[in-house]
Design a protein around this nucleic acid. Structure first.
Lengths: 238, 238
DNA sequence: ATTGCACGTTTGATACATCAGCGGTAAATA
DNA sequence: TATTTACCGCTGATGTATCAAACGTGCAAT
């Protein structure tokens, strides 16, 4: 109420602002997974009422970032092996598909943009920055598919993945060097070879999946038996 | 498959009721695509306040069934060729993947359930009922993947597809007979042959895609050029 | 005819009321 | 005295009523 509501706030829905702020906090693990969120406190903190907080919670729940316990509370989504597995599995489904479609639809400008992003891999980067570049690269490929749903889904998956990585990896890992793979992928897209593009993307996702699982294992987050079993028989979590 | 009531919680959230009711109306095209929705009127109609209506709108927006125009209104999502294309494309990405995973994870009970659903195809069905059975079949396969995200996504895609079919096909088409294909798919899943399962599912989706596109063309919803171009260069629509 | 202003309609936000679940505390029993 | 159970109060979500702001529309004036 103290906000004088400047005339410049033409198209700035308050709920969107809250949504983005919370989303960032959750993804950066500044709000720890499993934490129960107090809607009233958040409203006070951002100096707004509870309604936009409510809206933001709905959106975050749709993104899978918070769980709504009816009549009980909001909780930051827990990080479970199940979740990691599911996200990587979904990525394995849509990543290659997006690459295949990208090979069909990519324009010269698209290819140029992809090459630009690949070039940025060369610069010495910390893990956080590398994450960002990787996200841009894969989302750009999704963009080439010209399918808005695929794009939105890719973004969502990468967001969640980023959160998992921040939590589990703790930034202790050096920047991996697979820019060769990326160059090959762009080449395949430029050549219009959808199958090759899909295969490269599939291999890429597989390797990052194995990397991540190994990493989680060394951190004691899961045992070998869980990997063997896959995602079955996980009753707990969420 | 009884409802797993969460212990003491025997509650019916009002917003959920509104959500389900509106969702059904939208999917049955009783609310025509493109219609602007009056939140206050809906609130009066269901004898509730505007807040649960708001929540329901947020959920529907997350499902892609309504579009929220900030500071302007809610509108039932329009049906465009773009949307049909995107949904079928996404299905083409996750369907085969789900089938492949189903072959890895399906239990004997899963296979039995799938066979039961396939059997129901044999009975003489109207198009609406066939839709429902097809939905159950494909969602059941997604269920075998043990990936909750894949399951939710499959359900969402089928819901949207159902709406598109209701709108475009107008129930004038006879029940297609591809139960052989379905049987073959279940066989592959039972045998654990993921690649074969994925291939069958891919072919199945491709054929239904072609069927639907042809159907839309005969109804004058799109021209041949649009098919050639694919989804590119559609500036209009939502 | 076009532009500008004012009004009405509808969303967006706030403040307030209500209700269910959870935890603490106390009492009763073994 | 220790453990269990039942009751009560508190916290926080859900729903209602009200208010403010913004977009669209229509009329009027230039």
């Amino acid at each position: 109420m103290t906000v004088a509501s400047p005339a410049t706030t033409a198209h700035a829905p308050v709920s969107e602002r809250i949504y983005l702020a919370l989303r960032q906090e959750i993804m950066r693990c500044e709000l720890a997974p499993g934490t129960t969120l107090d809607a009233a406190a958040i409203a006070r903190r951002y100096e707004v009422s509870k309604t936009p907080v409510r809206d933001a919670m709905q959106k975050l729940a749709a993104d899978g970032l918070v769980a709504i316990l009816p009549r009980s509370g909001y909780r930051v989504a827990a990080i479970t092996f199940q979740a990691v597995h599911e996200i990587l599995d979904l990525r394995a489904a849509i990543g290659p598909h997006a690459a295949r479609q990208a090979a069909r639809h990519a324009t010269a400008a698209d290819v140029a943009e992809l090459r630009q992003i690949v070039r940025e891999y060369a610069a010495p980067l910390d893990v956080g920055a590398m994450q960002k570049v990787a996200r841009r690269f894969h989302v750009a490929i999704a963009g080439c598919s010209r399918n808005k749903r695929v794009i939105a889904l890719s973004e969502s998956l990468f967001d969640e993945l980023e959160r998992l990585l921040r939590f589990a990896i703790d930034f202790s890992v050096k920047a991996g060097e697979h820019s060769d793979e990326h160059t090959a992928l762009v080449d395949a897209i430029e050549a219009g070879d959808g199958e090759r593009a899909a295969a490269i993307e599939a291999a890429h996702i597989k390797s990052s999946r194995e990397f991540l699982i190994e990493r989680l294992m060394t951190l004691g987050y899961l045992s070998e038996s869980e990997i063997r079993i896959g995602s079955a028989a996980r009753s707990a979590g969420e």
